[in-house]
Design a binder for these strands. Structure first.
Length: 570
RNA sequence: CGGGGUGUAGCGCAGCCUGGUAGCGCAACUGCUUUGGGAGCAGUGGGUCGGGGGUUCGAAUCCCUCCACCCCGACCA
């Protein structure tokens, strides 16, 4: 492609409404333009990337034996009524009526449609298992769309649905999809992690999310350095400490701590490490008005875990200052478990410390040298805290590291939730009607593009992995309009590279070199060839990889072979 | 939906407080010069000042109202 016929919509200035790197760079490079909140036009440049991602997804799905189909984006609302999700989805579901006043919605996902299709078309166990997928536009009326295409309202998604007669078969397909997803992200050149998602469901590892690692990611994930274990931090188990509790060595004493309320303040005021403080959080209870949760001073409450405790009111709610005052008799800064008259649940990490410090339940006073089973009994124990960097992995192998990630894929063993609601059944070998068992597998195709940029950029712009770059090579000629031999060589190279099926962008503009370099770097072309009189005098053409700072001189007659080799290797 | 904020040229902004009929930078267009890291000079075009209503001799500016967009919270590929 010639730049003269492929106008670049690059801009120097960053629009004020872009916050994260990928959004800024997608606007600046001219890949997308906003139409309205959460709605974006993919330009001729951006669409090239989107299609490359899409095609990798499609290839891997096809390799995995899934069958592509396409369902309407507009769906009759009755189907949502049938599954019972109409109420559940709420205003995120965009609804409208046609001229006959029939109610429709724009599909945010397609479980209803595919299950309806399956119950009509799949009649025999001989047709199973089957995995049907589409790559299509979805619309979710997000309360707050942001970060460009990362969290848009309209977006491109690959959604797949599999149907089975037994759970072993579902498990097999789930593994098949797990492998296919891993292959896709590897092909795209992305650093990713499959992580355990909801383990609370019917046992086993029934759901995994795939995260592209990026410091700006919205999710924190914990993964082990000694095994494959990885989980969303929200779900990662903090294991019971196995070191024995030291024996008490201090006497229990009450100390004045005027105006010392936070763990930070108390620990520096009394000169005790935060690891030997216990903080007391009061939340609304389900069986009692309030309940106390104990954590070590250096730990943080994992609200998801707390929310799941039967003794805690759902959704989790912190007690108000008034509730605390009336239940305990002091304010937040002086709370402690000793002598407290409300139910107490302690985090695992609080159980093996001795001689610790906590509030005295008296305004402005703290207790020092507190010890379990001497000064107070051990309360109920639960896993309450967020896991931290360096924690032991819950599977007993290695230590956890925390990283941030962007969720780009999710695979899920659905079971019979929809097939039951829709009475989607086939006849089994015995001639009996049997409800189908389903799996569902999503990929945020347009989100991947943003995630890839989050992971691959520098202060000059995007650095595309070869497999999803809009063009693999940029040809940048120096003063082509003045030097006939530069022009001739550039034209020749352009033709040759294209002949070798390499996607090449030829900057044939009458522009200054710095201008062209800056554009090519901004839009992230991974390989650059510079042709100039300077080089030709020496019989060389300059090559530079986008992520390297140095030019490499390649003999003119070797450049084509060099490029073929270089790109093939990627 | 709750809280905060912004709408002035394609983009980024000033002007508003204290009303007098719209400006700066970048981009665009033309010409000349320049050409190995986002050029220089000269010139040109481009605005119902988010919409509607009101106050006033006069409104970008003051008042009312509607709308759009952005930021902080719950949701998700």
């Amino acid at each position: 492609m010639r730049v003269s016929k492929f106008p670049l919509l690059t801009v120097k200035e960053t629009p004020t409404d872009a916050e994260i790197t990928s959004h800024k760079l997608m606007i600046r490079s001219g890949m997308i333009r906003k139409l309205a909140a959460g709605l974006y036009t993919w330009t001729h440049l951006g669409l090239r990337v989107l299609r490359k991602v899409e095609n990798i997804v499609r290839d891997e799905m096809n390799n995995a034996g899934a069958l592509e189909l396409q369902m309407p984006t507009v769906q009759p609302t009755e189907l949502w009524d049938e599954s019972g999700r109409l109420a559940q989805y709420g205003p995120e579901l965009l609804r409208f009526r046609d001229r006959h006043d029939r109610e429709f919605c724009y599909g945010p996902t397609h479980e209803e449609i595919i299950t309806d299709f399956a119950r009509k078309e799949l009649k025999s166990h001989k047709q199973l298992p089957i995995n049907l997928y589409q790559i299509h536009t979805k619309f979710r009326d997000e309360i707050r769309p942001r970060f460009g295409v990362m969290r848009a309202r309209e977006f491109l998604m690959k959604d797949a649905y599999s149907f089975h007669t037994n759970y072993d078969c579902l498990e097999e397909e789930y593994q098949n999809m797990f492998t296919a997803y891993s292959n896709m992200f590897t092909k795209m050149g992305l650093e990713f992690r499959p992580v355990l998602a909801d383990t609370g469901n019917i046992g086993g590892s029934k759901s995994h999310e795939f995260h592209v690692l990026a410091s700006s990611g919205e999710d924190a994930i914990a993964f082990s350095d000694g095994s494959n274990y990885a989980a969303n931090v929200e779900l990662a188990e903090a294991v019971m400490p196995n070191e024995p509790r030291p024996v008490p060595s201090e006497e229990l004493q009450t100390i004045d701590t005027p105006d010392q309320e936070t763990i930070e303040e108390v620990s520096s005021f009394l000169n005790v490490p935060k690891e030997r403080c216990i903080k007391t959080l009061i939340v609304a209870g389900s069986e009692s008005p309030v309940i106390a949760l104990l954590l070590r001073g250096d730990d943080e409450l994992n609200e998801i875990k707390a929310d799941k405790l039967p003794e805690v009111e759902t959704p989790l709610r912190f007690a108000t200052d008034e509730e605390i005052k009336s239940a305990v008799g002091c304010n937040k800064g002086s709370l402690g478990p000793v002598g407290i008259e409300i139910p107490v649940i302690a985090d695992r990490n609080t159980t093996n410390i001795a001689d610790w410090t906590c509030g005295a339940n008296i305004e402005g006073k703290h207790l020092r040298g507190v010890n379990w089973e001497r000064d107070l009994p051990l309360p109920q124990i639960a896993d309450l805290r967020k896991v931290k960097d360096g924690d032991p992995s819950p599977d007993g192998q290695g230590k956890l590291s925390i990283a941030r990630g962007v969720e780009v894929g999710h695979i899920f063993q659905l079971g019979t939730k929809y097939s039951e609601a829709f009475k989607a059944a086939v006849q089994n070998e015995a001639g009996e009607s049997q409800t189908m068992i389903m799996g569902t597998y999503g990929i945020g195709v347009s989100r991947i593009v943003a995630a890839a940029i989050e992971q691959n950029n520098d202060d000059r712009g995007i650095i595309w992995p070869d497999s999803i770059a809009p063009f693999q090579v940029a040809i940048v000629p120096m003063n082509m309009h003045k030097s006939e031999r530069v022009q001739a060589k550039a034209e020749e190279l352009y033709k040759e590279l294209r002949k070798n099926s390499i996607d090449v962008l030829f900057d044939d503009r009458k522009a200054r070199p710095g201008f062209m370099f800056a554009d090519m770097e901004l839009i992230g072309i991974p390989h650059r060839i510079v042709i100039g009189d300077k080089g030709l005098d020496r019989g060389v053409i300059e090559y530079r990889k986008r992520d390297q700072g140095e030019n490499q001189d390649i003999a003119v007659e070797e450049i084509i072979q060099f490029m073929k080799d270089t790109i093939q290797r990627q």
